[in-house]
Design a protein around this nucleic acid. Sequence first.
DNA 1: CTGATTGCTACAGCCATTGTAGATTTCGTC
DNA 2: GACGAAATCTACAATGGCTGTAGCAATCAG
Lengths: 142, 142
Amino acid sequence: MLSIGTLAKRTGAKVQTIRYYEQIGLMPEPGRTEGGQRRYGNAGLDRLAFIRHSRELGFSLEAIRELLDLSDSPERSCAQIDAVAQRQLQEVEARITRLKALRIELQRMLSECSADRVADCRILEVLRDHEECLSNHDGTGI
Amino acid sequence: MLSIGTLAKRTGAKVQTIRYYEQIGLMPEPGRTEGGQRRYGNAGLDRLAFIRHSRELGFSLEAIRELLDLSDSPERSCAQIDAVAQRQLQEVEARITRLKALRIELQRMLSECSADRVADCRILEVLRDHEECLSNHDGTGI
DNA sequence: CTGATTGCTACAGCCATTGTAGATTTCGTC
DNA sequence: GACGAAATCTACAATGGCTGTAGCAATCAG
């Protein structure tokens, strides 16, 4: 049987994070020693590894909860799992698009400023006045 | 004189957000009516617009605080302002790099799964087993 | 057996808001 | 001036996804 610290080491999660996952019902309550310490089996380790790997790929805890629920019905169609992953891909793509617009704006801001004094700094001017921006970067999907 | 709701409409910030900025010292305490409601001048409006626009470009409130402090000394060199913007650009670039790696992984996952049953779903397999990934997407800089 | 390490609970804090409840003030209209 | 709708006020809780802390208790190696 594995202690919580062992699970933490093997998956890269912090001990508190594992307890947090248990608290929100993402990890099941494990068995305990006589002294009250958590002891996990391989199922616990696998589940935590699944959660951590999904987090690394950017899935929200809610999405992961959905995936875990779906994986409990192996005979069902995997269309829903596909949909969750598809949604995640779309979110990632949206974020990339937005960040690229920001990058362009920041680059332009930086390239335009060759002032010495703060008073003449183009960067501050651009930040003061949205109209000077090329894209609208209107905050949708930060 | 402008009410907090007017500032909100003009800048796109929520009323509560403006009060929050005041609470953390990013917006100054404005004058009040006899009845205790906030009233702003143009300086307040400009400052809020600066904050919102900087937020839209992804600057943290701490970075914005720094920029606002720096802009109060117009005779100083604007090298520090440049550095803040440069730092922000680097962060944006790092996030783009990371998201691109995630995108590739998600795309590959999706393209590989053509199963019908959850039991055979490649997506779940990949999520279960990090080893199946090409990149390491090790969580540095989510 | 002892001391270091690890684990326990309960709670607070992080960022940047957003939402809520219940009271008060302001504004437009009559 | 009176009325009612809209806006504003304070104070506090919640969001997501953890992370850190304090003050104990249990476990493990030597």
